[in-house]
Amino acid sequence: MQRREFIKGSAILGLTAIGTPAIVGASGMFHGTSQRRIHRILSADRVNVGTLPVLRAFAGNQQDYVSPYVLFDEFGPVHVNPGADPLRVDAHPHAGVTPTTYFLEGTGHHKDSLNYDFQIGKGDFMMFSSGKGAIHMEESGQELYEKGGDYHGFQIWLNTPAMYKFDDPSTTVFRYADMDMINNDQYNARVVLGELYGAKSGIATQSPAFYYHIKLKPDGRIDIPTDPTHNAFVYSIKGTLEVEEARQLKKNQVALYERGDSIIQLYSQQGAEFLVLGGQPLNEPVYSYGPFVMNNEDQIRRCIADYRSGKMGDPDAVNR
């Protein structure tokens, strides 16, 4: 049996006093002693999932810096012509993980073994909480097939805490009203998960997590407060961000931050669009075998057996 094993490492957390911020050199950034330090900047890799082009920032690795998240894919942007075959990922199982899907442009079609079959679109956020196991199919939606247009968004997996790994699966779609907004002269921010400056998401998670979609205006800056014991990372969708120590975060790059400090400081001269995510690290072993994310090899073997025996559903029925 082939598998990938990723064990959560330890990190030393420090306490830092909040100091008076100061301008760094000739940049637009403020610098304070509570600013988070960057561990590493990574560039997303191009892969195909089914017939869907994807940019993958991480998949199972980097857990000491991204947990409770476990995989990060940006699908598209790709233009779909009217009447073209849908971009599609055929029916496949998941267990022990919650794939989330967030649409920036276009529409999608989701069908699963839980008897859900629906269209989702721009601004929608879906959580496929796979628990002990379920099957789903994903493809570009009916509106794109009829009218054409751009298809763009994110599928980002939240790892499921050990105590919930074998719960019953569920599928939930959230709309604009479930996600709060912040609008000011520096930026617009949608709080998909968590809370930012009093704006709160109405979406519950199994462990503390945050997920912000932010658009900085030209010459705009934002200081994002975080729990120093939580992980945090930033992914650039469009434009260039100035991050810690005046480093540049370019399109399709992700900055992984160290723990121990609070504030993530971001600035853009020309304007930028990006995601900021993170949360409480699970501090649990992670065993990943394809779409199954568990805590040990015996659980992986159980998932494989359950899928093969039909306990997760019928992939042929989901594909129809």
Rank of each mutant, 00 (worst) to 15 (best):
R175S: 01
S170D: 12
N188D: 08
H152I: 02
G133W: 09
L196E: 10
Y151F: 03
T98V: 11
G123I: 14
K111M: 01
K122Q: 12
M127L: 02
G96M: 14
W157P: 04
D180M: 00
G108Y: 15
S130P: 15
D178F: 01
H136A: 00
E195I: 12
E143P: 07
R190W: 07
M163F: 10
F103L: 07
Q119K: 11
M137H: 01
E143I: 10
R190M: 11
T171R: 15
Y145S: 08
T98N: 06
Q186F: 08
M163Q: 08
Y116I: 03
G198P: 03
M179R: 06
S170Y: 12
G148W: 12
D167I: 01
E146W: 02
I156D: 05
E143K: 11
E105P: 13
S140K: 11
Y151C: 15
P93D: 05
L158A: 09
M126R: 01
G133F: 04
G131N: 02
D180V: 13
D180T: 15
D112P: 15
I120E: 06
Q155R: 15
S140H: 03
H109W: 00
T98P: 09
H109K: 06
I182T: 04
F103Q: 11
E139K: 06
R175Q: 05
K122Y: 02
M163W: 08
Q119T: 03
T160P: 00
L193W: 07
R190G: 11
G123M: 11
T172K: 15
G121W: 04
G148F: 13
Q142H: 02
N188E: 07
G149T: 02
S129C: 07
T101F: 07
G133M: 01
D117C: 04
G123R: 00
N184E: 08
E195F: 05
G148H: 10
D168S: 13
N184M: 05
G141Q: 03
H136C: 04
G121N: 04
A95R: 12
Y197V: 05
A177G: 14
S170L: 07
E105Y: 14
G123N: 06
G133E: 13
